[in-house]
Amino acid sequence: MNLTLKVWRQKNAKETGSFATYQVRDISPDMSFLEMMDVLNEQLISQGTESVVFDHDCREGICGMCSMFINGEAHGPDRGVTTCQLHMRKFKDGDTITVEPWRAKAFPVVRDLMVDRSSFDRIIQAGGFISVNTMGNLPDANATPIEKHDADAAFDAATCIGCGACVATCKNASAMLFVSAKVSQFALLPQGQVEAADRVRNMVNQMDLEGFGNCTNTGACEVECPKGISIENIARMNREYLKASLIS
């Protein structure tokens, strides 16, 4: 199929950017969106135009690096996928596709479609861990049984790939889903409960400092999350934070 692409081009963080329009031809429906972008880039290079810069790495939906806002939606129109898992069969011949970077104050554009998500790393640094050193003589892994339901819920929260689609799609650019997923994972496990109060306070504090917006419970993040992480995690974080503020 033949497509028209409206792609955001921006040289670096300081300059302002604008949309550029390109045509691509003979795109197979079996291609992934990023392979289509590869085709565009090879075409641009042969024409002497610098290729479009975008983040991507594993191309199997787990590293969380790819980050395109496609036709007004994070990771495009398909559900439960990252951009690398989005296939061109979701589009029609002759379509015009708008491709933009994630937009948030806390995710400044690096170049073209690539943004800086180090704010997520700093939130993890604020408390997204269990304070245990590497030790050869820790208690046996089976010393503390964990109820399967809790273990499964912790796992579901832990599947977050840190791609930032939740922030990108939220009308407020809020990072609540990301932060609450990590808070929940540890709050649900006995190992994590020791530091639960400090963790939630520090992570929320850092989230606020980074300039993310506030949660208005629209639920858009949950819909667009490639891993389907539930906003139940946000409710849990709200509880944890309240508890941490009132009690400890």
Partner: peptide, 18 residues
């Protein structure tokens, strides 16, 4: 042991063990 202490959510059975 290390990973469990770090909060890695390994699969568990209904008895709560790994």
């Amino acid at each position: 042991d290390q990973c469990v202490a770090q909060g890695v959510p390994f699969a568990r059975d209904y008895g709560g063990l790994l």
